[in-house]
Design a protein around this nucleic acid. Sequence first.
DNA 1: AGCCTATACTTGAGGTCACAAGCTTTTGCT
DNA 2: AGCAAAAGCTTGTGACCTCAAGTATAGGCT
Lengths: 161, 161
Amino acid sequence: MARAATIPKTSPEIQAFVRLVRASVAVTRELSAQLSADHGLSINAYEALLTLARAPDSRMRRVDLADSLLLTASGVTRLLDSLECDGYVGREQCESDRRVSYAVLTKTGRDKLREADTTHTRQIRELMGEHFEDGELTQLADLLARLPGVEPADESCAPDS
Amino acid sequence: MARAATIPKTSPEIQAFVRLVRASVAVTRELSAQLSADHGLSINAYEALLTLARAPDSRMRRVDLADSLLLTASGVTRLLDSLECDGYVGREQCESDRRVSYAVLTKTGRDKLREADTTHTRQIRELMGEHFEDGELTQLADLLARLPGVEPADESCAPDS
DNA sequence: AGCCTATACTTGAGGTCACAAGCTTTTGCT
DNA sequence: AGCAAAAGCTTGTGACCTCAAGTATAGGCT
């Protein structure tokens, strides 16, 4: 009986939550170690370079980059500090609004991204793809996208009442 | 065209990986802030208390707790330092092997867990459950369980030779 | 114009984690 | 027994991130 009576049961929500966090920690740790060893980049540093590379003119406001990376403003300041220090990213002032500065991908940064991309994306594909059949990864991605904050909020589809 | 020619494409594996990490960051940040504000516990502190509560005699070797929580040995030392400091966990020496010490849940720790459990599990259910139909959470949990490191490796199914 | 709030960003302080190195004890090998 | 390797744990160091607070600029309102 009831020695375990006070221990919370594991509902589907909690099961999913626990596995989500564990999966992220496990996968991130592995890929982060490889990326760091191979190229000296953190995952967020890589994602930052990638995000910039995809942006128009390879430039973004720091705030928008923070949103993209799910970082706080101060987090992005420090991340860019180190990327600027390595010469991967430059800084430019905005003409019309002197509060904002842009983060701009440099040529060096683009080269670094291209260099890191080859091994990193292969490692991701190996780690993620290994245990899934076709379609299951898409299914997983679709389910994850429903969680709040994962995909940028879609304002356009609010017909409200 | 092809301004974007050097930018990595997004395969299903990478899409799933990116969303996995984003989901974890978003969900963890929210729940961690609530848990910390309401009860002064980090998520790992809560999980540690919970894991201990479920263990036989509410006690575990520190190494095994580290494995359960996906932490390194040093990570668990520091986590337990603070839990011991708060009186939630005690320490006991192993008789037969003097290298190992056990982490033991105290009465105070059990009370704390019970106190935190009510709000925390409700918040998890709200956050996770909100955007899914029946069965989808189980589906998500099942998919996540396939990733390496998420569920403890099952040694028992090695027929070896 | 003056003021008030919001926005963009930076900085200081603190928390959490990993890695590397070190200590002690145990185990396996000869 | 003796020695080497492994296991369990702790500590120093540094990376990364957040929160709170501060600065500076922009925009709206009276």
